[in-house]
């Protein structure tokens, strides 16, 4: 019979009903025991998740941090040749790494000022009543479902300089041909087009969901007050989409910092490093050059960049969106 009690008390002890209980109520021994049992139950339920998280997320992070201060070729169980912060100082002199940061910044800016507004525009368009609306939504979302590798292989064929479809079309239209992925000057532009094609559908769906949760009454009221469509967008839709926009900007930045598979398959970071990202450089040093310590240093930089940005963004930008949420670890509570 004891068994059934466990989960029951867990429900009773959850934060919501507790607010109803006056805090000054004296605690009996029975309640303490019940609380302890609740803790045990929670721990047991959390344990499998915690173990997986520690093994698959925490341990690799710590291991990477540990090996980043060693000169290590990856052979043997653990590194031995301690070099302090040497890997990091070498990184600061590595022009490919510095180029990665620069290219990352360019991609982030482009995502924020081109990709997201485009997704927003299409989302608002597809929110209108029109024929085949569901089909359009499906079509625009489809690229996101596709695997990165497949998308990259597809575009490497489409944009191939010799026999690519894109150049056939340009030639047919009498526009000559473009080098797309095969020249250092054009590769970033082409890469960004592919990235936009791949990811805008995801942001579009988020915006669409956000737009649909805005009550119709608000726009109607604004229209009755004589607001033009632009005014409705500027003063009703946009502010109410704020939380969604803030979270998509967050995802776009983090995603760009960690960009790897699509670039690796599409261009390999080339030609001559012109489209290389932090992830590609890390892979090259780790798996081609067997400088695992150095590659770990790059991964630590990526981790720190993402972490600092994520924490700062949550603290300063997402704060109001997270208020009242249950998963803020106390950050959202007063």
């Amino acid at each position: 019979m004891k068994m059934t009690k466990g989960p029951e008390s867990a429900v009773r002890a959850s934060p919501v009903p507790r607010r109803l209980i006056p805090p000054q109520r004296p605690r009996s021994a029975a309640e303490k025991r019940r609380k302890l049992r609740t803790r045990v139950t929670i721990t047991l339920f959390l344990l499998p998740g915690l173990i997986l998280f520690s093994l698959l997320v925490l341990a690799p992070i710590l291991l990477a941090m540990y090996s980043s201060v060693f000169k290590w070729n990856g052979f043997g169980l653990l590194p031995k040749n301690f070099v302090g912060l040497d890997n990091f100082t070498r990184l600061l002199e590595n022009e490919i790494f510095l180029g990665d940061l620069q290219r990352g910044l360019i991609l982030i800016v482009l995502s924020l000022v081109v990709q997201l507004p485009l997704a927003l525009a299409i989302a608002l368009l597809l929110n209108q009543k029109m024929r085949l609306r569901a089909l359009y939504r499906l079509l625009f979302f489809a690229p996101y479902v596709l695997s990165e590798v497949i998308a990259a292989v597809l575009f490497s064929m489409l944009l191939s300089p010799e026999r690519g479809f894109a150049n056939e079309v340009l030639g047919f239209l009498g526009l000559g041909s473009s080098s797309f992925l095969s020249e250092p000057d054009t590769v970033m532009f082409s890469l960004f087009i592919v990235l936009t094609w791949k990811y805008f559908g995801f942001y579009m769906i988020l915006y669409l969901a956000g737009r649909q949760s805005i009550p119709k009454e608000l726009t109607e009221a604004a229209q009755i007050d004589g607001a033009t469509p632009w005014h409705v967008f500027r003063y009703v839709t946009l502010p109410l989409l704020g939380p969604t926009i803030r979270i998509t900007a967050f995802l776009a930045v983090i995603g760009t910092v960690q960009l790897f598979d699509l670039v690796y398959v599409l261009t390999g970071g080339g030609p001559v490093h012109a489209s290389e990202t932090l992830g590609v450089t890390m892979y090259d040093f780790g798996f081609n050059r067997f400088q695992v310590g150095y590659a770990s240093a790059i991964s630590v930089v990526m981790f720190v960049l993402s972490l600092v940005f994520a924490l700062g963004y949550q603290r300063f930008v997402l704060r109001r969106d997270l208020e009242g949420a249950t998963t803020t670890m106390g950050g959202g509570r007063r």
Partner: peptide
């Protein structure tokens, strides 16, 4: 070298061996 050689792989249908 062939047009677009900087982005050309070795052993795919648009690569060096195919040319």
């Amino acid at each position: 070298f062939q047009n677009g050689f900087l982005g050309a792989p070795y052993d795919t249908p648009d690569g060096q061996a195919a040319a």
